[in-house]
Structure formats: structure tokens, C-alpha cells
């Protein structure tokens, strides 16, 4: 098969557009729409140790199923959390996209993310490799798994009361 089939080209562009939409929704605080971007059994994971792949058996910063993602949003919007009141302003950029695989149903996409946070007169930065597993559902895509590998994950972080 031709390595540059039109299907794959579309897949990369579709995937990029989709994860950019996810990023924009997080920065714009469109959390209900964000929660709708995931497949039913999807996981949002922020691991501690570099290189770990069996996330369930290791300690993570976040290991969220649908219930936990909804709780994370509720905590950000609930107004009770002193670290999320006010919520940090965030701006994130995704780039260096690479389509790792596409079997027609599932797309694996890797990219980098730089996120800048501003809160209480302090600016902070979080840089990560992000691994997306996207699935074609109906006419569009859903996130089946998102793994955010912070480059300093195994070092000391400050509080992150929002979604990376």
C-alpha cells in the first residue's frame, strides 16, 4: 500500500483538528462539551514515572474514568476549592504531531503540548508529550485515551487544579 494514502493524510488532519478543538475547549472552559468528547470507557491519565505503560498498576497524578473526569470538572466549577477559586487561566499550544498508527477505527497520535498557567499574579509553564488514542464513532472522533507525560513528571510539581 502507498505510504501516503489519502486516508492517512485525512486521518492526521482530522486528528489534529480534533485535539486542537479539545485544547481550545479546555482553555475556553467549555467543560460540558469537553466531557462529551470521550468514549464511554476512556481514560485521562497523567503518569508520575516516565516510561510507564501499565498505568493502573502505578501511581499517577490523574487516572480518570468518566466519573472522575466529571468530578474534576465539578471541582473546578464548584467554587468550594480554594486552589480553583479563581480557576487558573490557561493557554496551551499543541504541535509536533505524529500519526503513530491508524487501523481504520483507532488512531494513535502523539504531539507536544506547552501550557502556560496564570493565577494570582504568577505565571507557570507545563510542558508535556501527549499521547492520544482516538476512535472513530459515528461521523466523528472520540478520545479513548489521553496520556499527558509531563517532562518533569518525576520531579516536584506545584498544585495543578485544572486539566492538563
Amino acid at each position: 500500500m502507498d505510504m501516503m494514502t489519502p486516508v492517512k493524510d485525512t486521518a492526521l488532519l482530522d486528528a489534529m483538528a480534533f485535539v486542537w478543538l479539545e485544547a481550545d475547549r479546555l482553555d475556553q472552559r467549555e467543560f460540558d462539551d469537553w466531557l462529551g468528547m470521550w468514549s464511554a470507557d476512556a481514560k485521562y491519565i497523567v503518569p508520575v514515572e516516565p516510561g510507564v505503560t501499565d498505568f493502573e498498576a502505578h501511581l499517577n497524578y490523574a487516572y480518570d474514568d468518566a466519573v472522575m473526569r466529571a468530578k474534576r470538572v465539578e471541582r473546578m466549577m464548584g467554587g468550594d476549592s480554594v486552589s480553583a477559586s479563581p480557576l487558573a487561566r490557561t493557554v496551551r499550544a499543541l504541535s509536533r504531531f505524529r500519526l503513530l498508527s491508524d487501523d481504520g477505527v483507532t488512531i494513535e497520535l502523539r504531539c507536544m503540548q506547552t501550557l502556560t498557567e496564570y493565577r494570582r499574579e504568577r505565571m507557570k509553564s507545563h510542558v508535556a508529550d501527549v499521547e492520544f488514542t482516538l476512535v472513530r464513532e459515528g461521523a466523528g472522533l472520540k478520545i479513548a485515551r489521553k496520556v499527558v507525560r509531563l517532562i518533569n513528571a518525576d520531579h516536584t510539581l506545584s498544585g495543578i487544579s485544572y486539566i492538563l
Binding site: R75, S83, G159, I160, S161
Partner: peptide, 28 residues
């Protein structure tokens, strides 16, 4: 292993920079 994994999930829920407890402690 299933019990140790449950412990990890409980730890993640409250503790650490993205937990539902520690960031609020750190903030105050």
C-alpha cells in the same frame, strides 16, 4: 494486586498536585 491498585486510586483521589485535596492544602 487488586487491593494495592485500589490503594493507588484512593491516594490519587486526594493526594498530589492534581489530587482533590493536596492542592487546596498547598493553596492555604
Amino acid at each position: 494486586e487488586i487491593a494495592n491498585r485500589e490503594r493507588l486510586r484512593i491516594h490519587e483521589f486526594f493526594q498530589g498536585p492534581m489530587g482533590f485535596g493536596s492542592p487546596d492544602d498547598a493553596e492555604v
